[in-house]
Design a protein around this nucleic acid. Structure first.
Length: 321
DNA sequence: AAATACAACAACCGCAGTGCA
DNA sequence: ATGCACTGCGGTTGTTGTATT
């Protein structure tokens, strides 16, 4: 079920949902900055601006698009709601499973998790986790909450998770905790993975996560990613699995849009996108699954493909040094 | 029908990291 | 070296719709 808020007009400022702050803008001018829910008019302005000008400085976006919002608010709205590649609607069971698994490695690094779920935002995943999964896990029959690495019993080297085997406990903890040895969580993860040698961890432990990572050279590449060279350029090979080398792309956010050419970006049907904005606002209870543009399709197809792949991968042996 | 509780979601806030002058 | 602006992230709060009493 996907609930939408009742839209409100940009012209009225009622209640907390659209308060107004005044901010000095230099040259003696004062601009009133709106806060709270976005109106359809604001959405359309931002969408139109972004589609025709692309992303620049967010404060410039706010100013140039004629929005009485701070840049930060514009950024958030674009990333979490208006972005063309967003997949809307309920999380599929596969996505849910993926989130649980990724969370067991990455913890609350929502942006990192989101980077592995095409079309989903960190905010969306975070909300989903806090409102749904967390409760479900709490009431489930699992002996401990897999989301909390601290709860993993010392004796248990493995944790059964939804039919998959999770990483070896040590590896999981290292990945989650190792922030001192590197400047970023991504390189931390890479460090861990590159330090895994080949005799201890069963390969399914690793493959469980690889498919979630766009650009992994591990499986036959989804054509979408394969067609955008450069996705793997910075990837690092973390191991070999039989005939397959295992590539981990950098764990920084893999932003699909960044890899589109200008033409490809332009091909995103602007009319469709604008329609989506207005239809979202018009249908309070709308998820956009009916809106079968390629952008929406891509995420679904990708996930299904990945889940198929993981189920067929052979078992191998890995080891933590 | 009204009141209340709950779930789901949107958006804000504060902080940290980064780049630049 | 310092200060500032900008960006991104994660935690938190507020709003709204729905279910329940």
């Amino acid at each position: 079920m996907y609930k939408m808020r009742k839209p409100e007009s940009a012209t009225k400022n009622n209640s907390m949902s659209s308060s107004v702050n005044t901010v000095a803008m230099g040259m003696g001018s004062v601009v009133k900055l709106r806060k709270g829910l976005w109106s359809p008019e604001e959405d359309e302005r931002l969408m139109t601006y972004m589609l025709s000008n692309g992303q620049g400085s967010w404060s410039d976006v706010a100013r140039n698009a004629g929005l009485q919002r701070c840049g930060k608010s514009c950024r958030l709205r674009w990333i979490n709601y208006l972005r063309p590649d967003l997949k809307r609607g309920a999380f599929s069971p596969q996505e849910e499973e993926l989130i649980i698994n990724l969370h067991s490695i990455l913890g609350n690094r929502w942006s990192q998790i989101a980077a592995r779920l095409p079309g989903r935002t960190d905010n969306e995943i975070k909300n989903f986790w806090n409102s749904t999964i967390k409760k479900r896990l709490k009431t489930s029959s699992l002996p401990s909450d897999p989301s909390n690495v601290d709860n993993i019993p010392v004796e248990s080297s493995k944790l059964e998770l939804s039919g998959f085997m999770a990483f070896n406990e040590t590896a999981i903890k290292s990945m989650c905790m190792d922030s001192s040895s590197s400047s970023s969580s991504s390189s931390s993860m890479q460090n861990i993975l590159t330090n895994i040698s080949y005799d201890l961890l069963p390969i399914p432990d690793l493959t469980m996560y690889c498919p979630a990572i766009p650009g992994s050279g591990f499986f036959h590449e989804p054509t979408y990613y394969a067609s955008h060279q450069g996705m793997n350029v910075d990837g690092c090979m973390v191991g070999r699995g039989g005939d397959h080398d295992i590539f981990m792309p950098p764990l920084e956010s893999v932003n699909i849009e960044e890899h589109l050419t200008d033409n490809e970006r332009g091909n995103a049907n602007q009319k469709d996108l604008l329609n989506r904005v207005s239809s979202d606002h018009n249908n309070n209870n709308n998820n956009n699954n009916n809106n079968n543009n390629n952008v929406d399709k891509m995420g679904e197809w990708d996930l299904e493909e990945l889940m198929r792949d993981v189920s067929s991968f052979p078992f191998l042996e890995f080891q933590v040094e």
